[in-house]
Design a protein around this nucleic acid. Structure first.
Lengths: 232, 232
DNA sequence: AGAATAGTGTCTGTGAGACAGTATGTA
DNA sequence: TACATACTGTCTCACAGACACTATTCT
């Protein structure tokens, strides 16, 4: 595969697609990382991704999904572009360009599969700094984390870190994990109602106290954004 | 140059960098477009951009700036990534990837130079639909316009469509042109004060009535974002 | 004086934060 | 009954919208 990208011969930028896939697990924000088997940076940890295969990928988002499925077996619930990173120094092979996707998934959806893949692991966001990380992926993860934090303040996107059926308490907890400080339960309830993108289930669920109402995302709705942020 | 990108031979995605450069001129939002001299889509209008030259570009933002300078002679005051567009059908030569930048400039900075370049023109945003446009650039311009509108609601970025010294009235007018509806003068004044990124000049300027206070952006400050949008 | 634009003062509306109070489950 | 968590009611605060009022310049 790599032979098509011999930069010294064709002066073509090396183009890859990577993803920062987040989830929240046990009250901690985690990012999916892969132990690199090949050079450059063999043995170090990097983001899941790779080269576009123009024979099977219709667009670069398909590349991102394909690479993520190899590690998690499923497509993430939320996927959007983060940014493109490029430069002459980020890859020892030469000028390289990486389009990075930003993705969210419920941990429960992938937990069993990820244990069977021994080169991919959920890394606690605070542990990334202690790992040997490939390329500029440490920096990219920081940027993705900042984006996720912003999204948690003005949008309902973090709901995609939750299982299909979830409670207000779980949603609140995910948001608090992402933004790193407490929010008012009331604010979450207000937004759930105002967004109009959720429906209540008849079922309730145990929570240590009073039974909690279950919610799910209505079919076919888009993520709702708000005109006002939660407080930072 | 194009020989390095023979996709049938190397199955390498075609990678280009384009820019959507906006300005506001005579109360209308304009986008810089270029009449294409070569295939594909020769004779149609497209976004300024082209291939990365790995010998002279340190990163893809340099490619964007270099291509914009060819048309405007100066670097835009504001430049950020919009998105990357890709697919097997957007370019007749094969799978292609375009990283698109989003840029703002004051019309006065480029007006004289642009008149000397006969293949580049400011196109009124409402006229784009009536032109023969290359690739998916019509769609990309729509997306860029939506992003600009959002930015006008929550950030001070549109100030970069104004000359170095500007009045509240001019700023208000630019914002109204971008979002397509009137805003309260008071709201602009409140934001100018709250942002803390401007300083007043001693000079005032004629405006048909009372003299208007001139403002400028303080040296070295970043664009300020607000936690609350203007009303949509 | 009258028109035009700049700028101020201040009231209303909306939605987030704070937090007390109520409801309903388990040990 | 004690507690834990879920949910509601409601006050405050910050900031955008609305708009009347004042200020300054030109004709």
């Amino acid at each position: 595969m790599i032979k098509h990208y011999d930069i010294t011969e064709y002066k073509n930028p090396l183009f890859t697609v990577d993803s920062v896939l987040f989830t929240v697990k046990n009250g901690a924000l985690k990012v999916l990382m892969v132990k690199r088997a090949s050079e450059p940076f063999a043995g170090r940890w990097g983001l899941p991704g790779g080269f576009v295969d123009v024979d099977i990928d219709d667009s670069v988002s398909m590349t991102a999904l394909r690479k993520l499925k190899e590690k998690t077996s499923v497509a993430p619930q939320y996927l959007e572009q983060l940014q493109t990173y490029s430069g002459i120094n980020r890859d020892p092979r030469g000028f390289s360009v990486t389009l990075v996707y930003f993705a969210l998934i419920a941990e429960a959806q992938v937990s069993t599969h990820i244990e069977t893949v021994d080169d991919a692991k959920w890394i606690d966001i605070d542990e990334v700094n202690n790992l040997p990380v490939a390329f500029d992926h440490k920096y990219i993860i920081e940027q993705a984390k900042a984006r996720l934090k912003q999204k948690a303040l003005y949008s309902m996107a973090p709901v995609y870190c939750l299982p299909e059926h979830f409670t207000v308490g779980q949603f609140k907890s995910v948001i608090e994990t992402i933004i790193g400080k407490p929010v008012q339960r009331k604010s979450i309830i207000r937004r759930i109602e105002a967004a109009g993108m959720f429906e209540t289930l008849d079922e309730k669920v145990k929570s240590g106290g009073r039974l909690a109402q279950l919610y799910k995302v209505k079919a076919g709705v888009d993520i709702v954004n708000f005109e006002r942020n939660l407080s930072v």
